[in-house]
């Protein structure tokens, strides 16, 4: 069992992921903005974070920088996003932060669960598309 934080401002997505991850036996916590996530991340101390890219308030870079400042840069992050990146941009982000995978919306829940399990069991070096 792992502790997974779901950070997304779309309630439907949070609920879907919560149910799916809990069925797999994981403990879930949720936050609906970057601020909310940063307030609780130290207390929750998650093994993995599913982070939406486009939320109101702090932008993704600000969230990831503040996570570093809190000394929590080792936490594995999976970006769950509608944003399409170029390979070079994904590589640059991966070098700078502990982003272990990118999942594009709309996503297949079973595929997402497989990729979460892969990261929890050690993962690999290159994020998949």
């Amino acid at each position: 069992m792992a502790k997974i934080m779901i950070v997304d401002d779309t309630i439907d997505i949070v609920e879907t992921l919560k149910i799916a991850l809990q069925k797999k036996g994981h403990e879930t916590n949720e936050a609906h903005s970057g601020d909310e996530f940063l307030k609780s991340v130290e207390e929750v101390n998650p093994d993995l974070v599913l982070l939406d890219v486009m939320m109101p308030g702090l932008n993704t870079r600000q969230i990831l920088e503040r996570l570093k400042e809190k000394g929590k840069e080792h936490i594995k992050i999976i970006l769950v996003t509608v944003v399409r990146f170029a390979d070079a941009e994904r590589d640059a982000l991966q070098k700078e932060y502990n982003i272990v995978d990118y999942i594009t919306k709309p996503f297949d829940v079973f595929d997402l669960l497989q990729r979460v399990e892969k990261q929890l069991s050690g993962g690999d070096d290159a994020p998949s598309q």
Binding site: R84, A92, E96
Partner: peptide
């Protein structure tokens, strides 16, 4: 960066306003 390769296939003069890169890339 993701849009750029497909721009060459367009017969139009397309000016892109990218509102996402600055929030992600350092």
């Amino acid at each position: 960066e993701t849009i750029q390769p497909a721009l060459k296939r367009l017969s139009k003069n397309v000016h892109v306003v990218d509102c996402i890169s600055t929030s992600l890339l350092s």
